[in-house]
Design a protein around this nucleic acid. Structure first.
Ligand code: ATP
Length: 645
DNA sequence: TTTTCGATTTTCCCT
DNA sequence: AAATCGAAAA
């Protein structure tokens, strides 16, 4: 029984009637398919229906369809739309990182990975590792040198260039002996000391070696190791390529080559690629729209151009922005909505006033009966988001900012997570140092001694603690060490309670902040939040590991509540709201000027970001900017606003 | 020698 | 707001 959907049998009330192209995409369930869809043309709607169609009418099981999104917020949106239609949770819908992480955990051993690896998930920890390497290599560990090396390592990794394939000594001819060289890094031209440039490969190799030693993976490694898994292990590859009878890849214009290669390895001639080259905003992560363009004439291609999202005025502005792009495929959006929609551009003397305006305007909307879930405030940089969050909270407006911004970077949250990570991965020097120095009388020196023991005896850092007699410790300190060992190796009580009570973190924190009660209160609240997140998890090693793995898709797991959304433009991609604020639309912020400069290439990509931002609005779009920072420093209005006026 | 304290610096975007 | 580095304290 093969059912073809058409306009008559699509009787579901809460479903829009799909147009001809959308229906064709929904009904094309054999072979490869490329869907090119500009903003708001219903690509999410279409692929959700395609998924539902495959399940309900063509005998696919949910665990046979792999659907990848680019951000966790988009994954959450996709999942909730599928749940609405089918009443079950789709098991393989998520970001590539979260889906492949699951596959890697199961298959770690077959590529020589210790399955108890933990994630190296922030730049600060990466820099710590790089800095140590730099010092050993005789490189001046200045902050900008370390950032430079980090950026190069990132560039290698998200382009799939492996350390093992690089020679240690660079012999590129145009690397001069003295002076400066100019080079492009993430589309930015930077001037750099050739002596430093020469050491990039070596540092990269050492960085990789260090991560293996500490049993850490960074985000790029999740992809690199998945690719290696499928490349080197035919059995595993066959298993997954047969398991996933159909694959759908959303936001394909933003994939990097490693991601494209992985899809190539497991796809089984039922690959649906969805993309919009005007929404490519992740070149800095090595994205290349080549998967979108690799589709040739013979393969099926469907273009969606009718916008169902925004009012006429908004669409006309969006089209003006598309016209202003230098590199684009000629296209325009057709507006299908009858309503005009509203665009307002407001100027304020400083950021304080701008925030006040946004708060008051939101209050007014809420008074008029607008739901909080229909309001979003978008911004280019998170620091603006943090300030907006504070302002909204002060005014008792329920709002939500991604936890990765203001939550996972807090010291108490990092401390708790380090403790959990150390329980899973006792080779992580990063986690070990963080925990050890919390104890009174223990500092970096002692940590280094234990690390040395671990190295000598080739044992884990926790095992090195047991050899504490090799370094003279006072009785008090010995007792502390034993306490730490016992809480780390205890897998029967709640690990967070172990840390807070048995290890004594709560009293450490309370004494550290005894003079700042409000700060302490704040920290205690964050600790409560972590406890809540952990609820429902057992204390066994596997459970803690699963909890930690779950954190990489925290934005997908976030409960839907009625509250105002605060989001960067990047993570707002694919989503929509009735009322959208675009805050601090200033030159140097959007477009963002890195170190006071803006490369013309970058400008186009910032413009695409602006395009994404303004195309999120259904009914009203409020763009605001400010003239000074409050201390007299002048800010210009974004030149992008000129385009739409 | 190692820890602790206080002044200084660092913050683009995401997984 | 937190990490870092040098100087003071233990
Ligand atoms: N055929 C249709 N008729 C009426 N409304 C539609 C139709 N298709 C989609 N829509 C509506 O248009 C809006 C935009 O759709 P959707 O979010 O699927 O677009 P999108 O292509 O994913 O956008 P973007 O590329 O910006 O992420 C949604 O509110 C959706 O319900």
């Amino acid at each position: 029984m093969r059912k073809v959907l058409n306009e008559d049998n699509m009787s579901n009330k809460n479903l829009p009637v799909l147009n001809k192209e959308q229906l064709e995409a929904v009904n094309t369930i054999k072979g490869n398919l490329l869907i090119i869809a500009s903003a708001g043309t219903g690509k999410t709607t279409t692929i959700v229906e395609r998924y539902v169609n495959m399940i309900q009418n063509h005998g696919y099981r949910p665990d046979e369809i792999l659907m990848t999104t680019f951000t966790n917020k988009a994954a959450k949106d996709m999942v909730s739309k599928i749940v609405k239609r089918t009443k079950f949770e789709p098991p393989y819908v998520g970001t590539m990182h979260s889906l492949f992480m699951r596959i890697l955990r199961v298959n770690a051993q077959s590529i020589g990975l210790n399955p108890y690896f933990t994630l190296l998930d922030n730049d600060l920890d990466k820099k710590k590792i790089i800095k140590l390497i730099a010092k050993n290599e005789g490189i001046d560990p200045r902050a900008d040198n370390i950032s430079y090396l980090l950026r190069w390592i990132g560039k290698f990794k998200n382009r799939g260039i492996l350390a093992e394939n690089l020679s240690e000594n660079l012999t590129i001819e145009d690397i001069k002996e003295k002076g400066f060289i100019e080079e492009a890094l993430d589309d930015e031209i930077i001037r750099i000391d050739p002596q430093l440039r020469k050491k990039v490969n070596k540092v990269y190799k050492k960085y990789e070696a260090e991560l293996r030693k500490q049993n850490l993976l960074d985000f790029d490694d999740i992809l690199i190791f998945t690719k290696r898994l499928f490349e080197t292990n035919k059995e595993v590859r066959d298993y997954y390529s047969q398991k996933f009878k159909a694959i759908m890849v959303d936001e394909a214009q933003d994939l990097n080559v490693v991601q494209i290669d992985i899809i190539g390895l497991i796809q089984n001639d039922n690959l649906c690629v969805i993309g919009d080259e005007c929404q490519n905003i992740y070149e800095w992560r090595g994205s290349s729209p080549e998967l979108v363009f690799s589709f040739n004439e013979k393969q099926k291609k469907i273009v969606l151009q009718d916008n169902y999202r925004s009012g006429k005025k908004i669409i006309s502005s969006v089209n003006k922005v598309i016209n202003a792009m230098k590199f684009k495929i000629d296209k325009q959006l057709n507006c299908t909505k009858e309503s005009d929609g509203k665009i307002k551009i407001e100027e304020f003397s400083d950021f304080e006033e701008e925030k006040e305006y946004i708060v008051n305007k939101i209050k007014k909307l809420l008074k008029e009966g607008v739901s909080k879930a229909d309001i979003a405030v978008l911004f280019r940089i998170n620091s603006i988001g943090k300030e907006l969050e504070r302002e909204l909270k002060k005014n008792k407006i329920p709002c939500h900012l991604s936890k990765s911004v203001n939550f996972f970077e807090r010291e108490e949250v990092k401390d708790i997570l380090s403790f959990l990570r150390l329980k899973i991965n006792p080779y992580s020097v990063i986690a070990f140092e963080r925990i050890l120095v919390l104890m009174n009388g223990f500092g970096k020196g002692t940590a280094k001694k234990f690390e040395e023991i671990a190295k000598q005896k080739t044992c884990s850092l926790i095992d090195s603690l047991k050899l504490h007699s090799e370094i003279k410790l006072s009785q008090d300190k010995t007792r502390e060490v034993h306490k730490l060992i016992s809480v780390i190796e205890n897998f029967s009580s709640n690990p967070i309670t172990l840390f807070l009570k048995d290890f004594g973190y709560l009293s450490i924190l309370k004494s550290k902040y005894r003079e700042e009660p409000s700060k302490l209160q704040d920290k205690l609240e964050n600790i409560e939040t972590i406890k809540e997140l952990f609820e429902g998890h057992e204390s066994k090693k596997e459970d803690i590991k699963n909890f930690l793995d779950g954190l990489i898709e925290i934005d997908k797991k976030e409960k839907t509540k009625d509250r105002v959304t605060l989001s960067t433009i990047h993570s707002a991609k694919g989503l929509e709201w009735e009322n959208v604020f675009l805050a601090s639309c200033n030159e140097k912020i959007l477009p963002f000027y890195f170190r006071g400069e803006l490369d013309p290439m970058k400008r186009d990509s910032e413009l695409r970001l602006f395009y994404v931002a303004i195309s999120r609005a259904k009914k009203s779009l409020m763009i605001s900017h400010h003239e000074t920072n409050g201390w007299g420093k002048e800010y210009e209005r974004s030149s992008f606003i000129d385009l739409i006026e």
